[in-house]
Amino acid sequence: MLTDHDKQEIQAELARTPSRRGALIEALRVVQRRAGWVSNADVVEVAAFLGLPVSQAEDVATFYSMIFRQEVGRHVILLCDSVSCWVNRADALLTHLRSRLGIRLGQTTADGRFTLLPAACLGACDRGPVMKVDEDLHTHLTAEKIDRILESYP
C-alpha cells in the first residue's frame, strides 16, 4: 500500500515533470526507500497512482539494478566487482564474504540481516577493494576489515 507520505513524495516529483511517466522511476524509489524493496503489488499500485499501464511500470522496475524486486535483508552489501577492485583481489573478498555469511550473490542471510549483491564500479577505484553497506562506503577492504565492518551492522 502506498502511504500518504509516499503519495506526497510522488506528487512532488510529478510537479517537476511534464509527463506523469517522468515520475515513474522516482515513485518506485520512494516505495523502496520505505519498504526496502518493490513488490509486484507495489508496481501495480504505483502504476495506478500515476495512471500508467502496469506493463510500463513493470518494464522499468525490472530494468534498473537498484530497484530491488525481491525482499532484501536489513542491510544490503554492494561489493564492487569491477576491474580496478578485481585487480586488487576483490574476488578473494567475495569468497570470504560468501563463506562468512553463508550465502551466494543475490541471497539474503537466513536471519534476514544481510543481502549480498555485486555492484558495478563504485567510483573509489584508488581505494579498492570497496563495498557499500547501506549508504556507507568502505574502502581498502581486507578480510579482517570486512569482519569488523559486518559487526557494526546489527
Binding site: 509527463s19 511517466r21 515520475a23 515513474l24 522511476i25 522499468v60 530494468f63 534498473y64
Partner: peptide
C-alpha cells in the same frame, strides 16, 4: 538520482531514464 545501470551514462540512455523509461 539514477536507478542504476551503466547505460544511463550514455547520454541518450540517460534521457530515457529521466523520462521514466528504460534507459
Amino acid at each position: 538520482p539514477s536507478a542504476g545501470r551503466y547505460i544511463c551514462g550514455e547520454e541518450t540512455g540517460l534521457l530515457g531514464a529521466l523520462e521514466g523509461r528504460r534507459a
